[in-house]
């Protein structure tokens, strides 16, 4: 018998008495206004919320956030970027990216998280090697809590998915909170509806 068979056989032999699987409710009646709650929790987790007016060009919003950024890589057609993701080759070649720009599929109010899949990221490492991340989010695509989030279809289809909540952080040294531990130093969520965005992509001003 190989290890797989031994393990399965031992497990089957030792499994204790049967216990039923419970139904998990959504716990979602009486949830507060998702957009406001999302913003509060995002900021509590160290992220920045930007709510530009519909007329503001995305490029200028990003420039205002990161005026000194030289290399911008975007996974969303709404922003041009200075470094194209196509033809980047190995993920490590993103190590010089100052600002990564992505669009999140949805947000989660309970925690201030944004959902990003491999499709949303283009190259998975973009979300981690960039020094800063700018995440576009449609305020209409914010669910109330994690139960609702995990019922979203994106979790079934994504090859890779992350619930990202604020920037990289650690408090491993004397409990002092540090942002920019290994991943991005800052994470900014820019409120921008998808419908408006597709118009913006067409004009694509710098």
């Amino acid at each position: 018998m190989n290890s797989r068979e031994i393990i399965l056989e031992t497990v089957k032999r030792n499994q204790p008495r049967v216990a039923a699987l419970p139904e998990v409710p959504l716990f979602d009646p009486h949830l507060p206004d998702p957009w406001r709650q999302f913003g509060e929790n995002l900021q509590r987790m160290g992220g920045t919320l930007v709510e530009p007016s519909p007329d503001d060009g995305l490029a200028s919003v990003i420039k205002a956030l990161h005026p000194d950024a030289k290399i911008i890589a975007s996974a969303t057609p709404e922003i041009e970027g200075t470094k194209q993701l196509e033809g980047v080759g190995a993920p490590r070649n993103l190590s010089d990216v100052d600002v990564g720009v992505v669009r999140a599929a949805f947000g989660v109010a309970e925690t201030g998280s944004v959902f990003l899949s491999d499709v949303d990221l283009g190259i998975r490492a973009l979300g981690y090697l960039s020094q800063h991340l700018v995440v576009l989010l449609d305020p209409a695509e914010v669910v109330g809590n994690l139960h609702q989030a995990y019922h979203r279809p994106e979790f079934a289809t994504a090859s890779y998915a992350v619930l990202m909540t604020g920037p990289s952080a650690t408090a491993d040294i004397e409990g002092v909170l540090i942002h920019g531990a290994q991943g991005v130093r800052t994470l900014s969520v820019v409120a921008r509806p998808v419908a408006v965005a597709s118009q913006q992509a067409a004009t694509n001003s710098q």
Partner: peptide
Amino acid sequence: EHVAVFVRMLSRSAVGSPITQYTSHFRKPP
């Protein structure tokens, strides 16, 4: 759907934050 139950409790129990900064789901290799 069960992941939600555990993710809601893990970081709250561990360090008193609602969720870890990164909750990542690896399904298929790139």
